[in-house]
Design a protein around this nucleic acid. Sequence first.
DNA 1: GTACTTAGTATACTTTTTTGTACTAATGCT
DNA 2: AGCATTAGTACAAAAAAGTATACTAAGTAC
Lengths: 115, 115
Amino acid sequence: MREKKINKYESCCDVNGIFKIIGGKWKALIIKAISEDCPKRFGELRRDLDTIAQTTLTVQLRELERDGIISRKIYAETPPRVEYKLSELGQTLLPILELLDDWWALYKTSKTDAI
Amino acid sequence: MREKKINKYESCCDVNGIFKIIGGKWKALIIKAISEDCPKRFGELRRDLDTIAQTTLTVQLRELERDGIISRKIYAETPPRVEYKLSELGQTLLPILELLDDWWALYKTSKTDAI
DNA sequence: GTACTTAGTATACTTTTTTGTACTAATGCT
DNA sequence: AGCATTAGTACAAAAAAGTATACTAAGTAC
């Protein structure tokens, strides 16, 4: 009798859940950029992130919106204006992102200290 | 005069630093698996993670080792035995991973509550 | 002496993520 | 009339991440 194998780590305690939301090359950066100057227009965001491809930015913003992290407000003007801001849920991510930054800062010093 | 554009977010406050270390599909899971039963052999790890490709596991472990998160001890036996354990630095990641889990748990309930 | 074991490596492949280029619509400015 | 502006979309391509399959070495168990 072969028991069906269940991936213990993937099924119950998935850290990867949050990674699907803030992982990838740009998501965390986008969240930070919006938080620093909220609401923020599409074009400002693109300039802040500088090297991001426009298509990528659009995709990432759509996903963040779908996941309830940001909201999108369209103004019926010409040229178009679209503003993004963090939702309440999105704001709960900020202290977490800071903590991640802190760890990284520590990591970097620990690496350079070791001469 | 065109000032050289610097990506403000990527250059100074990179959350992405830590993502390079614990990001991806498996790294966080591997860290947790090792922490729960440390030291852990390669084969145990593979069984715990179940659906991971062996090549992937090897690559991830090498990267975690290179980044100073885990250590690798080879026993000169046959069949070979290799044990992995968390470094001190690696252990500092555990509370962070828990926090990420906590956020995810909260996120999930907030999504199902909204009926 | 044949089969089993472990912790891999080599290679090719598929999938996912990110990028690059070109295009659009509606209006204001000159 | 012609150009600039914004927030995109469409499509193709490249790069990165992960997977599948087959193979290895050295001993132990039968």
